[in-house]
Every structure is written in C-alpha cells, then in structure tokens.
C-alpha cells in the first residue's frame, strides 16, 4: 500500500496549509515544520496508520522527510 498520501495528509493537517514537499526534502531543515509541530506530526502518524511509536523511536531524524517516515512505517509493518 502506498503510504505517502496518508503521510502527506498528516503533514498538511499538522502544518495547517497545503504544503507539498519533495519526498527527500527536510521538513524541519527547510522550515516547512518547526520543532514544536513535530509532536503533533508524530501523533498524527500514529492515528493515521494505527501504530504506537515507542519512546526509543522518538527521534527527530526518523521523521525528517516523507521518505524517512515511509521507511519507518514500512519497517513497522505498516
């Protein structure tokens, strides 16, 4: 299943605007999201994909691009 539409949906809901970053574009380095939006982004991913992200995975690097989020969810079997 292609997860990128779901990731983009969560991302846009978090940002509150219809941003469409490149799959490998840094969401935080580019300023599309600030650090304080990250918790909402991760919570949104948990709800959208029905996954509980453990403390040990709560690292900003894992969620910095759409590609990284996609790989992470893939590794979690989603």
């Amino acid at each position: 299943m292609d997860k990128k539409p779901g990731i983009l949906k969560v991302l846009q809901a978090t940002a509150g605007k219809p941003i469409t970053p490149q799959d490998d574009e840094s969401l935080f380095g580019s300023g599309l999201l600030d650090s304080f939006a990250l918790p909402d982004f991760v919570s949104g991913l948990e709800a959208e994909f029905g996954v509980s992200i453990p403390d040990s995975d709560l690292s900003a690097r894992k969620f910095d691009t759409i590609d990284k989020v996609d790989s992470y969810l893939e590794a979690r079997g989603k």
């Binding site: 935080f28 650090s35 304080f36 990250l38 918790p39 991760v42 709560l58 690292s59 900003a60």
Partner: peptide, 10 residues
C-alpha cells in the same frame, strides 16, 4: 537535538 528533546518532553 532540539526536535528530539521536544518530541520526548512533550
């Protein structure tokens, strides 16, 4: 690592 600290703390 500000983003990760915020993520954990929040």
């Amino acid at each position: 690592d500000g983003g990760s600290v915020i993520l954990r703390a929040s």
